[in-house]
Computed example of a mutant assay.
Amino acid sequence: MKFGIYNEIQASPGANYKQRYDETLRSVELGDALGYDVFMTLEHHFFPTFSISVNPLAFFAAAAQRSKNIRFRAMCHTLPVHNPMVLAAEIAQCDHLTDGRLEVGVGRGHGWLYDPASVPMADSIGLYEESLEILQRAWSNERFSFEGKHYNVRDVEVVPKPLQPSLKIFQTGTSARVFGDAGRRGGGVVVGAAPPPLFTEAVNAYTAAAKEAGNTPQVGLVVPVFLADDEATALREAREPMMRSYANLVVPQESINNEEVKERLRGGGFHFYAGGFLNQMKEYTFESVLANDIAFVGTPSQFIPWLQRFRERHYDFQELALMADFGGQAEWQVARTLQLFARDVMPALR
């Protein structure tokens, strides 16, 4: 079992952005000292309550100067909004700046990013697939060419090449087709921070494809977690920031709720967003979030059997990442969750 930290770097209304970056850098330092394996954040734009992690590579380069062992992974780079030849070089440079501690997460990203980025939703699948192919060719070939619908590349040398001989690629989302491709290719997947049934079909497709291809599955699970030494304290302290977090996350969904946008979302294969799933977060209660295995609040000794029940009810995983920073918590509360998990849960799961 590997252990990670996932931080969306939410900026609740009124938050100081510099403070949020500094707090997150300190959480990476703490995670490194405590023995966590990987730190993850996403790439996100335009909607600060969801995330101000607009450039994960820059953040990783800074965090690498303050840590020794922890690895870094963006979940995920939104490939259709990038020039893939440029992104390939930027990722490779970051691998050098992190001393070969970089992993790569890819996806089509959130449906609400496309209009502000002036990228046609209808092109998202083609742009994603061509971009992923270009990234892999750019890293593994001295020079390469590519001819597709969206990109035509003639004898290009992308520099630098990654420091590592190969970069592990992870995918996220809810698509069984995409996850099956990841399993056949030998990559990993990351899911979670939402109702587990959303991911069951995709995870099962990934696991089956990986095993059929002779690859070892690597499913990463992200769980919003709030730990304290006693249950009453955890429940009392977690309620307000957890519910504020869901109010933060639903904000960008409101930008794509009209029917004209939903039609374009469906045309681009963004059925999850067209269905308005995140609107359901407006109806979440603290009790429903915990009852439906979306998040965990309690003590370390309670978390261990909760994880076993999660496996039995939903799907297996080989990596567990805590989303411990959400909804404007105090920094000491985030640190306490990371410390208690490392002290009491990690040894029981290794």
Rank of each mutant, 00 (worst) to 15 (best):
S124N: 12
G109F: 06
G328W: 09
K18T: 13
G107T: 03
L320T: 05
E231I: 09
F326L: 06
L249E: 06
P241L: 00
V345Q: 04
W306Y: 15
A324S: 10
V289I: 13
S124E: 11
A182W: 02
V222W: 14
L87S: 05
L290G: 12
D115N: 15
A33V: 12
L97A: 14
Q93I: 03
G183T: 04
P56M: 11
L163Q: 05
A89F: 00
V223W: 04
E90H: 00
R20T: 12
V54D: 09
N215Q: 11
Q10H: 04
G14W: 13
T174Y: 12
V54L: 05
L132R: 01
Q339R: 09
H45G: 05
T207D: 12
A348C: 10
L249T: 07
S27E: 03
P252H: 05
A324Q: 10
N279G: 07
G111R: 08
Q280T: 05
I134C: 02
A202G: 00
L290Y: 08
R185D: 15
D230G: 13
K18V: 11
S245I: 08
G267K: 00
I304V: 10
R71C: 02
E29K: 06
V81A: 07
R71N: 10
A291T: 09
C94M: 11
E23L: 08
R73I: 13
V119E: 07
R343C: 04
E237A: 12
G111T: 07
N292W: 15
D229N: 08
I294F: 13
F146P: 01
V203T: 14
V81E: 09
A324Y: 09
D32K: 01
S51G: 00
L340V: 01
F270Q: 04
Y17H: 15
